[in-house]
């Protein structure tokens, strides 16, 4: 809007004699601001259509588009119906997404807690403990952010399923480095994997914040005789709550929404599958239970969306930290 007026002022001298033309011109120049709301509508329609369709019967979903939902009720009450949700959530009739949601929660909660603690220790050390090679170690750790998780999947899966044995060169003796704990197909395997993959980003994000805490704080604490351990728990953790929350939301959404790592590490163990895999396999059936698909997709979507809306402020801070030089 300021855009338009300023621009018009610039050309005002040319067009002083044409009031009608000016009005049209101003109108045309304001079109870009509508673009924002066109985008908003376009961006909302897909989610909205899923939401509406998940409350429609199978026949209604196959027979007409979501915009016709209200006319479903022409022959008796059909919309909204909870049928799809009932069927998709409970194991005896449908896909058993209820169990899968518990798995998702289990994966996401634990895979959020472990990395926070571990990364906070490391971020503190990188920020406030001096040691030779600190900068290089930090850069090397954070550089791993760009490594695609695909490059680690095969070795990790075989470590989980058969353990890691190291055959010493020349003398040919084998020692076990990581025992075969039968982790493949279990949720703990997913926890460990997520923790490892989350490290570079977590350290990067937390370090940015912790390194920015005022230096005097640490100096006066040290003069008072506090050691690193005390400073960390009494000073750094309470002061870093916003960034810890930001990372927690980030990691929660990431682990809840993850498909690749769970698919690789859990694979065929039906008992341990998270929601994303169950919904994806429903999608793979092409048609047979497509009415369940809408309800299933909505169920796995609604949790992160609620988290997101409730804690958006922290989430945005997490995303923007470090990428904007303020």
């Amino acid at each position: 809007m300021t855009n338009t007026t300023e621009k018009t002022r610039a050309t005002a001298t040319v067009s002083a004699r044409r009031p009608m033309g000016n009005r049209i011109y101003r109108f045309l120049r304001s079109i870009p601001t509508w673009f924002l709301w066109v985008m908003v509508i376009l961006w909302t329609i897909p989610t909205f259509s899923l939401f509406v369709n998940s409350f429609r019967t199978r026949d209604a979903q196959r027979g007409s588009g979501f915009w016709n939902a209200l006319s479903d009720n022409a022959n008796g009450w059909q919309f909204p119906t909870l049928e799809n949700y009932q069927e998709v959530l409970f194991p005896d009739v449908g896909a058993g997404l209820g169990n899968a949601l518990l798995n998702s929660a289990s994966i996401a909660i634990v895979a959020t807690i472990i990395p926070i603690a571990i990364a906070a220790f490391a971020a503190y050390a990188f920020a406030w403990i001096d040691f030779p090679g600190r900068e290089w170690l930090f850069i090397a750790t954070v550089a791993l952010l760009a490594v695609p998780s695909q490059v680690a999947l095969i070795p990790l899966l075989s470590a989980y399923s058969t353990g890691v044995a190291l055959t010493l060169p020349v003398i040919g003796k084998t020692i076990t480095v990581f025992p075969d704990l039968n982790l493949s197909g279990t949720i703990p395997a997913v926890w460990l994997t997520h923790t490892g993959f989350a490290m570079p980003f977590a350290i990067f994000l937390l370090h940015n914040y912790i390194a920015g805490l005022p230096k005097d704080l640490f100096e006066s604490a040290r003069i008072d005789g506090a050691d690193h351990f005390k400073i960390f728990f009494r000073l750094v953790v309470p002061l870093s709550v916003p960034v810890l929350a930001a990372f927690a939301i980030f990691q929660f959404l990431w682990t809840w929404n993850d498909y690749l790592i769970a698919l690789t590490m859990i694979g065929g163990n039906r008992e341990a599958l998270p929601g994303t895999i169950v919904v994806a396999s429903l999608a793979g059936e092409f048609g047979a239970r497509e009415n369940l698909l809408t309800a299933g997709a909505f169920v796995i979507t609604v949790v992160p969306v609620l988290v997101f809306f409730a804690l958006q402020r922290f989430f945005v801070r997490g995303i923007t930290a470090g990428s904007v030089k303020g």
Binding site: W37, P46, L50, N257, T301, P304, V305
Partner: peptide
């Protein structure tokens, strides 16, 4: 409001988004 709504898909899983857009793209 505008920014929240455009940002919202960031919270949706790729799996969920794929299902959503299959509904948009479906051909009868």
């Amino acid at each position: 409001i505008a920014k929240s709504l455009i940002f919202l898909p960031m919270a949706i899983s790729f799996v969920g988004a794929s299902v959503i857009w299959r509904l948009i793209y479906v051909a009868r």
